[in-house]
Amino acid sequence: MTNPVIFWLIALVVIVSGLMVVLLKNIVHSALFLVVTFVGVSATYVLLQADFLAAVQILVYAGAVSILLVFGVMLTVRGDIKSSNLFNRHKLSGGVVALALFLIVERIILKTEWVLSKNPAPESTVGPIAEAMLTKFVIPFEVAAILLLVAMVGAILLAKGEGKPQ
């Protein structure tokens, strides 16, 4: 089993940087802390013996998604960057809703009796994932490919501003 100290350290990094993403006033700093959160979540995947997904998390989230978000910030922010990420009028009520949801979920998690399995996890997950993806889940796999293609075409069309009167 994993060392508890490592888990608590990673959980601390994930939660603190996640809070920083929401609470900081400069949206560029939020984006940078978002990368820290993604790397921390990837470390959690390693603890859960999901090596392939940890690598995918680093590549897709810390690599691609955060770069996209930084591009979005650079192309749109105007005015003072120091106050570019403020709260709207739901600052208090949103906090209450999030806290209430957490308390409910936490109660449910602690009350449930999980049927834990004693089976060991496989040494490497890449082979079993490939087997599952290309046999049992081959239709969803193809649909996901089509979804990515459609999203790519849609994003290009939208960002180009097609059909806008000049």
Partner: peptide, 15 residues
Amino acid sequence: VLFCIGLYGALAKRS
């Protein structure tokens, strides 16, 4: 915890 932090950000941010 992470989900609720994200929910708070999605609900209460202006940008």
